[in-house]
Nucleic acid binder design. Structure first.
Lengths: 231, 231
DNA sequence: CCATAGATTTCGCCT
DNA sequence: AGGCGAAGTCTATGG
């Protein structure tokens, strides 16, 4: 990612034509070549941008542009639609490049995380007498969302999903298989909990002796009134 | 505007709850206190953000957070809705503040300007035998978007709008009234051209003998292939 | 000032 | 992959 603060003017030609007059702005060049032009206000939407896939090429300003004080011209062209963004740069105040790596978590798993927190707090939803052992119980093949004990003290592994699909059942199955080899834990039963469980997933789960639990997010949230207590 | 590149985790609680695990990201603090959290990919939409009006306060990490390597915690709270964004910062790689001033803003007339250019080039859209006199024909009360002549040599004044509304008809009416007093131009007929003409505007226009012309921007652009020739 | 429609929408889910 | 609907939508317009 490259960050540039510069006085610039911007022209866009694509689905519409637009022009940004000369001003100091933030230019963000992302790793995929996409470009954002931000001002010091407004919302998260840039003044102008080019979405990936696109390519940025830096071209030399012509005579007129150079005479007008333009030192650099960025041409960003969209790979498919041929939309074009021209950034005419005059003065550069900051030019800083950073390697961010790939981001782990654009995931809107916020709901799942919240569900996990709520279910941990309302562990009775698993059944009377259940107690929480811990969230994110670590195993060799990854963390189990929730580990609990039932009224009889037997281990219960819970896999949580917003939408309960086959994949989730398979995941839980792998955990159960592994955990049941651990004499300290075994026998471990499984609960597949989700806001919505697909019929196929339910069939597969029940066929494997995994209990299915449909969660009412709104109700759980209402009881918990979770907003305030997250921090 | 303050730019920070830092490894951080982000929690949002508001209309939904969301969590971004630890990673290196770009934090943009705008002049109005709003915050954007960007990764090195995706589109122009940030991973997370807080819209104005909001306030950012930097709070000291507690014992646990400090032990976990957190050096700074940013708390951004929305002024009205009480949405909250918590940024837990570990390592800061860049911290750069810049005064951008107010942005003159996006020129919204880009489409109208483009339409004018296209219609001038495709003046036959006014009707067979029409010829262009000039764009932005100046009168005492302002410039007429396009002045043309019909097949018989009579003057035609064109008012262009993206969305054809009553106001545009009134504007053209004033031009026509003025121009028809000029013996060198009179008689001048009017054409009200727009991508979309409101029924009320159409009624008013036709009642005054003004012809309405709906323009197909995409088609005009396709014929012109205007993208390449803008620069 | 509030409702409504459009967006260079973006984003995710589903067929 | 294409289509549809929601979004922490944002943005402008109309009333």
């Amino acid at each position: 990612m490259r960050l540039v603060i510069a006085t610039c003017s911007v022209d866009y030609a694509g689905r519409l034509t637009a022009h940004l007059p000369l001003a100091k702005r933030l230019l963000v060049v992302k790793g995929d070549g996409s470009l954002l032009v931000h001002s010091d206000g407004g919302s998260y939407k840039p003044l102008n941008w080019m979405s990936p896939p696109c390519t940025l090429s830096i071209i030399e300003p012509d005579e007129d542009q150079r005479a007008a004080g333009v030192t650099e011209v960025w041409k960003v062209t969209h790979t498919k639609t041929a939309d074009m963004l021209i950034v005419s740069i005059r003065e550069i105040e900051l030019d800083s490049t950073h390697d961010l790596g790939i981001d782990p978590g654009l995931q809107k798993d916020g709901v799942e995380a919240h569900l996990q927190k709520l279910l941990a707090e309302q562990i009775h939803l698993l059944g009377d007498g259940h107690t929480l052992v811990r969230r994110e119980y670590m195993t060799a093949i990854g963390p189990v969302d929730i580990l609990a004990r039932d009224a009889g003290g037997a281990s219960v592994a819970v896999e949580l999903k917003r939408r309960g699909d086959i994949d989730g059942v398979e995941q839980l199955t792998r955990y159960l298989e592994l955990m049941n080899r651990d004499p300290l834990l075994a026998p471990v039963t499984g609960v597949f909990a989700a806001q919505e469980i697909k019929p196929q997933a339910r069939t597969l789960a029940e066929d494997r002796g995994i209990r299915c639990l449909v969660l009412d997010y709104d109700e759980m949230r209402g009881i918990d009134d979770g907003k305030a207590r997250l921090f």
